[in-house]
Simulated assay, not measured.
Amino acid sequence: MTRYALITGASSGIGLALAEALARRGRSLILVARQRDQLESIAIELTQRFGVDVLFRACDLGEPLRLSGFLLELEEGERQIDLLVNCAGIGSSGPFLAQDWMTEQDLMEVNILALTRLCHAVGNSMALQGGGQILNVASVAAFQPGPWMSTYYASKAYVLHFSEGLREELKTCGIQVSVLCPGPTRTAFFGSAQMDTAKLDRSQQLMSAEEVALYTVRALEKNKAIIIPGRRNRWLAFSPRLSPRWLTRKIAGAVNKAYCSR
């Protein structure tokens, strides 16, 4: 029976790059994102280029009823998923009190609740079939508080700690859990989070989504617990341990405020 890698947030950025990297290795895919037209063209292209089976499902993970419907389809279907990649994510920047509440709620629905629910549903299926692998996408932001992006940073801290906890819990079920913590990456994330993309585009520190994906799939093959692509990003993740919390907050806040577009 063909087994599939299920990837959320697969229409662009790191999710799309991971889909291509896995297809290149002969993996069959189920791609999930909000944009149906983009998913369809991506599925056709990956099938033609790599000769793998690529399915897709347009689903807004921020809407619990639609997510429930999608999970029901998976449960009633016959396709086995042996790799779950939770890459869908939303960002926001600027003063917390100035944010539209529905945007903040959507962020938490996608970054936290949908990810957790997918781990629960697909994890149970994996346990029944004897094992599998889960990759949750967090960020180097997970290692510290982030003023002017407070909700986003906190959501990624949840993903990091949740994934590490699951890794220990699910070992006995034959399920390997890893968490990807990329640094700043050249994707559409910054524009959607209302950050100053002109400043970011001039930065020489950003990795490409393809670089992140290549590093990640190699780390997954080695069953790495925490995956941080790039030496500079590994330093960014480690450095908060060396500074007092008040200084970490101030530095992160100053950096984030400088890139806010409002």
Rank of each mutant, 00 (worst) to 15 (best):
M1Y: 06
I7Q: 04
S12R: 04
L16D: 00
A19L: 05
E20Q: 04
L22Y: 07
A23S: 08
R25G: 04
V32C: 15
D37T: 10
D37E: 13
A43Y: 03
E45I: 00
L46V: 05
Q48S: 10
Q48P: 09
F50M: 05
F50Y: 15
G51S: 08
D53F: 08
V54Y: 11
C59E: 14
C59Y: 11
L65H: 12
G69V: 05
F70D: 13
L71G: 04
E73W: 15
E73I: 11
E76H: 03
E78S: 13
R79N: 10
I81Q: 11
D82N: 10
L83Q: 00
L84A: 04
V85F: 01
G89I: 00
I90P: 08
I90C: 13
S93D: 09
D100F: 06
M102V: 07
E104W: 07
E104C: 12
L107M: 15
T116Y: 11
R117G: 12
C119A: 06
H120Q: 13
G123A: 10
S125Y: 10
A127I: 06
L128N: 14
G130Y: 06
G132C: 07
L135W: 01
V137T: 06
A138N: 07
A138G: 07
A141G: 05
A142S: 08
M149E: 12
Y152H: 14
S155I: 15
R167I: 09
L170D: 04
C173W: 11
C173H: 08
S178Y: 03
L180N: 03
G183I: 01
T185H: 06
R186W: 00
T187I: 04
F189L: 10
S192C: 04
Q194D: 15
L200M: 01
R202Q: 03
S208M: 05
V212L: 05
Y215V: 02
L220S: 00
L220G: 08
E221H: 00
N233L: 01
W235V: 02
L236K: 01
P244I: 09
K250I: 04
A252E: 09
A254T: 01
N256K: 13
K257G: 15
R262C: 14
